[in-house]
Write a protein that binds this DNA or RNA. Sequence first.
DNA 1: GCCAACGTTGGC
DNA 2: GCCAACGTTGGC
Length: 138
Amino acid sequence: MAYWLFKSEPDTWSWAQQSARGDQGEEWNGVRNYQARNFMRQMEIGDQGFFYHSQTEKAVVGLVEVIATSHPDSTTDDPRWDCVDIKALCPMPRPVSLEMVKAEPLLAEMALLRQSRLSVQPVTPEAWDIICKMGGLE
DNA sequence: GCCAACGTTGGC
DNA sequence: GCCAACGTTGGC
């Protein structure tokens, strides 16, 4: 099983909206970036991810799970763009802010810091554990 | 609101 | 195939 990070502007698609979808989940659509798309194509059902709010909040606010593998993005006719479906698992008891991630030397290599514009990115198992603990999980 | 980073597009 | 121009994203 692999770990990922999904980034969203809360004004566009928020954790609250994602949670409201329940187990039915929702397409992670609208991605128009090849790198991000390629990561989604690698995802498998049961993979887990962080849900990150960019812009105003800049924090990991919850955990999600992949419930459908890559398929055409319903928001475009352009055959280049695929997406997966994800559902909310649980909120972070304490959201892990970008500031907190930056302050942890063990997380310095995260794509979140190195490639700030990438909206879908892989997370190593080590980074996953660290952030879960920082957020009050486990 | 600004700016840096970076991806995309189009002309050559 | 290169590169300049431009658009978008995200942090500050």
